[in-house]
Structure formats: structure tokens, C-alpha cells
Simulated scan of single mutants.
Amino acid sequence: MAAGDAFTASQRHQIDKAIRDAEQMSRYEFSVYVGASDGETRPFAQRLHAALAAPDRSVLVLVDPAARIVEVVTGTVARRDLDDAEVKLATLAMQSAFAAGDLVGGIVAGVHQLAEHARRPTLQHGG
């Protein structure tokens, strides 16, 4: 998580816990960047995503509070389980929380929702 100095220790803990929980739930890597974009938002988010340790298996959430922008970038492997419609739903949920003044709650809820959608269904064997 970047720009973390804008958050209290408790808020950072909430976001870090949401990321850890999302990774366990989905088996994908999650990253959150909060801050201003360097240039156009989408290309900036894509560059951040490409610089991650395992971009193909990663989901990056970029939040630019001042510009009121949320970008989600998914890697090629993660995209198999997390489609554009599911990303859009999570983005709308985050934006709704942000509009109500809840930046941390919106990030936590959005990361959780992305992980829920990315979770592979449990295989059940018939008997």
C-alpha cells in the first residue's frame, strides 16, 4: 500500500488485514495504492501492476481520493476468475463508500468483494 502515511496505524491494519484475507480467500495477490496518479490514471495503474512480483496472479486497486478515481487492474490469470462486470460492481461499491466519506471502509469492502468474486468455487464430488 502506498501513501500509507495518510492513514492511522489502525486504518493501515484494517487495509492490510483485508489484503491478507483476500489473498487467502482467492489465492491471488492483492495490492492497494492510495494517492495521486502520475499522469493518466489507467496507464499509471497498469505500470504499478506490471511492477508487482507476480503481475499475472495479481489484482491492483488504485484509489486517487482527490480525483475521485478508482482503477482495478487484474493479471491474466486473475482475470479468469474475476471478470470486468465483477470488477465494476466492486468499484461501484468502493465509490459509494468513498462518497459517504468512508475511504478505509470502501477499500476494505472493495478488496473483500473482489476476493469473493475471484474465489474459485469449491469442487464437490458426487457420490
Rank of each mutant, 00 (worst) to 15 (best):
S10T: 12
H112G: 15
T41K: 05
K88H: 07
A3T: 07
M1W: 03
A118R: 13
A2K: 04
A100G: 14
A109W: 02
I69F: 01
Q24E: 13
A78F: 04
T41Y: 08
V73L: 07
V72S: 02
S10Q: 14
A22M: 10
A6V: 07
E86K: 15
T8P: 08
T122L: 15
T91S: 14
E23H: 06
A90G: 04
D84Q: 10
D56F: 01
R42L: 15
Q113M: 15
G126D: 10
S96Q: 12
A118D: 07
Q113V: 11
I69E: 05
Q124V: 15
S10M: 04
A51F: 06
E40V: 07
A93M: 09
Q124H: 12
V73S: 06
Q124G: 07
L89Q: 11
R68D: 10
A36H: 12
F98M: 15
D21Y: 06
I19D: 04
G105L: 13
I19T: 06
A109N: 14
L62E: 07
V108D: 03
P55K: 05
L82I: 05
F30T: 09
R12C: 05
D81F: 02
M94K: 08
V111N: 09
L92E: 15
L48N: 05
T74Q: 07
A109S: 15
H125Q: 07
Y28D: 05
V104H: 08
G105E: 12
Q11N: 04
E29K: 10
A50L: 05
